[in-house]
């Protein structure tokens, strides 16, 4: 799990699809505050947040990468709007379901014929690791966004004019 920040302006957006409250982007290209470009690919974004991610949107973008999902979970615009939504919630539920089903399967097989199904054990381990990653990812994404709450206030301060 990692989080990162991009300060800049969205120059170009290439959306792959948007449905079920989730938008998936092929790529998003940013012009960063230092003048350089940075492109992020295969980004998963909740629809509420995706509505604010338009070409020309400028401010601070909060990104996460966990397990096999990368995305944008927060955006604070230069004009003071603030958006937060972590898009990995569905995967967390999926891992809980996968873990529960496979744990039940392993217990059932052990009780019925005494054999331990290796695929069931493998999927259970995967579910546990996946759940830990996704829930940790959600916590870290939220913490990153909350701890940076001063960003909007900082940009709204009037610039000191020289002389």
């Amino acid at each position: 799990m990692s989080t990162s920040i991009i300060d800049g302006t969205i120059e170009e957006i290439d959306i792959k699809r948007a449905r079920g409250g989730i938008a998936i982007y092929k790529s998003i290209r940013f012009k960063q505050a230092d003048g350089s470009s940075r492109t992020v690919t295969k980004q998963v974004v909740s629809q509420e947040l995706a509505d604010a991610l338009t070409e020309g949107a400028s401010g601070r973008f909060y990104l996460f990468s966990t397990f096999d999902i990368k995305g944008i979970h927060g955006f604070r615009s230069r004009t003071g709007e603030s958006y937060y939504k972590f898009a990995g919630g569905a995967n967390t539920k999926l891992f809980i379901l996968l873990g529960a089903v496979n744990l039940a399967w392993v217990i059932f097989r052990v009780m019925i014929d005494g054999n331990v199904p290796m695929l069931g054990v493998a999927l259970f381990i995967l579910a546990v690791v996946g759940y830990i990653f996704m829930s940790k990812g959600a916590r870290e994404a939220k913490a990153q966004f909350d701890e940076d709450g001063g960003y909007t206030a900082a940009i709204e301060q009037p610039a000191v004019q020289p002389g």
Partner: peptide, 8 residues
């Protein structure tokens, strides 16, 4: 300085 990498 690579940002946004998946696995640690």
């Amino acid at each position: 300085g690579a940002q946004g990498l998946g696995p640690s």
